[in-house]
């Protein structure tokens, strides 16, 4: 997924002289093609994420569309106030790229588990929050954010994620999309854990619908409203704490749609998310997902 991101960023940067990549001394064997081709639009800011984000804000004030790139919680939590105040309040074109979303860096320990990012990012005004499920979505989101004025967040996986969409997807900001339509149950997911949904539905609930939400914010309100009229049972899956995450956002959206009478009733929703806990031991992403109860 990170390769899809950097490859597309390079494609965009060839056409758009405002694309700038800043890394926090990370990105070995990923960012080099960008560095080689665009040395004037690349910066290694060192292991200093607050400064990195402030620099990105300064570059964005001068017209650049800046991508800050680091692992897990480093580009987000470590520089959170810079993101809130310097980037979001000033509505600057800084896109924060976090590699290793969820438990992708499972064996590295809790420091590297990015499992609260949706919450802290989606609460910020002006921020767009994305989590592509596969390389196709990562590519489409990269293109969108290269052409979007204002802040954005991309949670990437790591490497080697399979393509879940049959072919490349075209997206607009906020768009959700069906992997397949069905009846009865609707499974919704964001990020690379969508793979688990597809596997579960294929094996156990073949008539159900599946939808991918590459955007946690803005949510696709029309998609949700239409789906609420068709599916009475929803199951959401995310690699994030249950508070303030993707399922929470969908619940809030459905509640508002019900409240303003866009939909007659709330569907029944089962949220599958991390139940308010850290995991302090090592494991593969698959293992830790199970340990966290992310099982359908």
């Amino acid at each position: 997924m990170r390769t899809a991101f950097i490859n597309q960023l390079i494609v965009e940067a060839r056409q758009n002289k405002n694309i700038f990549l800043v890394v926090g001394d990370l990105g070995f064997s990923v960012v080099e093609p960008f560095t080689d081709e665009f040395p004037d639009r690349f910066l290694n800011a060192g292991v200093a994420e607050q400064n990195m984000t402030g620099i990105a804000a300064g570059l964005a004030m001068e017209g650049y569309n800046v991508f800050t790139y680091s692992i897990g919680n480093f580009p987000t939590m470590r520089a959170y106030e810079q993101i809130r105040y310097d980037v979001c309040y000033h509505n600057l074109s800084v896109k924060i790229v976090s590699v290793g979303g969820g438990y992708a860096y499972g064996p590295l320990g809790t420091s590297h588990h990015a499992t609260e990012d949706f919450g802290i990012m989606r609460v910020l005004p002006n921020m767009i929050v994305t989590a592509p499920s596969d390389p196709h979505e990562a590519k489409a989101i990269t293109t969108l954010l290269c052409n979007h004025k204002g802040p954005g967040y991309i949670r990437l996986g790591k490497a080697g994620e399979p393509n879940l969409h049959q072919r490349e997807v075209g997206l607009h900001i906020g768009q959700a999309l069906y992997i397949k339509e069905g009846s009865g149950n609707l499974y919704i997911a964001t990020g690379s854990i969508l793979k688990d949904v597809i596997a579960h539905v294929t094996a156990n609930d073949p008539t159900a619908g599946i939808a991918s939400f590459p955007f946690i914010k803005p949510l696709d309100t029309h998609f949700i409203a239409d789906a609420a009229k068709k599916y009475t049972n929803w199951i959401s899956l995310e690699e994030h704490q249950s508070s303030c995450g993707f399922g929470s956002a969908v619940l809030e959206c459905l509640n508002d749609l019900c409240n303003n009478q866009t939909i007659p009733n709330m569907p029944k929703i089962k949220r599958v998310a991390i139940p308010d806990k850290f995991i302090g031991y090592a494991g593969t992403q698959e293992f830790l997902r199970k340990e966290a109860g992310l099982i359908l």
């Binding site: 400064n51 402030g54 620099i55 804000a57 300064g58 570059l59 001068e62 650049y64």
Partner: peptide, 11 residues
């Protein structure tokens, strides 16, 4: 100061 570094770098 971090933002100022970004401005100066851009210049």
């Amino acid at each position: 100061l971090p933002v100022g570094c970004g401005l100066a770098l851009s210049a």
